[in-house]
């Protein structure tokens, strides 16, 4: 039932022109197929081009070589079918929580009636447990709550793919765990195709069906792909003793710190 070639990256390359010097090749030779409703993480050291890769999928940045297809259609620019949760949340500070989500829904689903619009926005406010804060401005809520609004805003426009660029990177570890729980719970209810950029090993294993490990730049590419064969829903505490969890963690750690250790970090 799930389209095997839902999202397809074909021989992606990103090179930068630097005047007077040879081109800098950030990412090269990336081939990847992502199935519908699959959650994948892309992990790697900083500078491995993982954010660049995500930006190319979102269309905010264009690859210099190769193709990206979403359901057989080539990606040529940004669009609401690939919603982005930005690391710094990117909420508009002059709009309330509700208005931030409403603005996105209104634009992407202009056919909704006033009541339908309200119902949809409120559904997603509730989904991230922010009913009590829906009339607050972003500056009046915590970082974790802002990121939840960001997630709600992205999901509310019913994207085909949810792209998350180190979504919890700027948060403390407790808040981060809380948000991971939110994300897993939401994913149980609303199936989404999700791509998460992260540098956190536990986060990658906990959230993903597959973990894509990137080699170091320049000329970064996919080093290994790890299948995480853990049943859902996953419980972070119980997982600590699960041999599959341990295997996955070790595989990633060994990739990051043995095969592709980075000296200057």
């Amino acid at each position: 039932m799930a389209d095997q070639k839902f999202l397809h990256l074909e021989n992606i390359e990103k090179r930068f022109h630097i005047p007077g010097k040879p081109d800098y090749v950030a990412v090269t030779n990336v081939d990847l197929e992502i199935k519908q409703n699959e959650i994948i993480s892309i992990i790697g050291h900083s500078g491995c081009g993982k954010s660049t890769l995500l930006n190319m999928i979102s269309g905010l940045d264009m690859q210099t070589g190769g193709y990206i297809f979403l359901q057989g259609k080539e990606v040529v620019g940004p669009g609401p079918d690939r919603a982005v949760v930005f690391q710094n949340h990117s909420l508009l500070p002059w709009l309330t929580v509700y208005q931030n989500i409403e603005m996105a829904v209104k634009k992407v689903m202009p056919e909704l009636s006033k009541d339908e619009l309200k119902a949809r926005v409120e559904k997603f406010v509730t989904m991230v447990n922010l009913d009590h804060a829906k009339d607050k401005l972003p500056d009046e809520i915590s970082g974790g709550m802002k990121q939840r609004v960001g997630i709600a805003r992205a999901l509310a426009i019913k994207p085909k793919v949810l792209l998350m660029d180190e979504p919890f990177g700027a948060l403390d570890s407790l808040t981060r765990a809380n948000l991971q729980e939110h994300l897993m719970r939401i994913q149980q209810n609303v199936q989404n195709t999700v791509i998460i950029i992260t540098h956190d090993v536990d986060e990658a294993v906990l959230l993903s069906d597959r973990v894509i490990m990137m080699t170091n730049g320049p000329e970064a590419t996919i080093g290994e792909i790890l299948e995480v064969n853990l049943p859902r829903p996953r419980d972070r505490v119980a997982l600590q003793k699960d041999p599959e969890y341990t295997r996955c963690r070790e595989a990633i750690l060994s990739f990051l710190y043995e095969k592709f250790a980075k000296e200057d970090e």
């Binding site: 620019g77 710094n88 990117s90 634009k107």
Partner: peptide
């Protein structure tokens, strides 16, 4: 205007007037 806000506008495919 922060480039982040403009990225939001790009993802939502705002027209120039929007």
């Amino acid at each position: 205007v922060s480039p982040d806000y403009l990225n939001v506008a790009k993802v939502l495919q705002f027209t120039p007037i929007e």
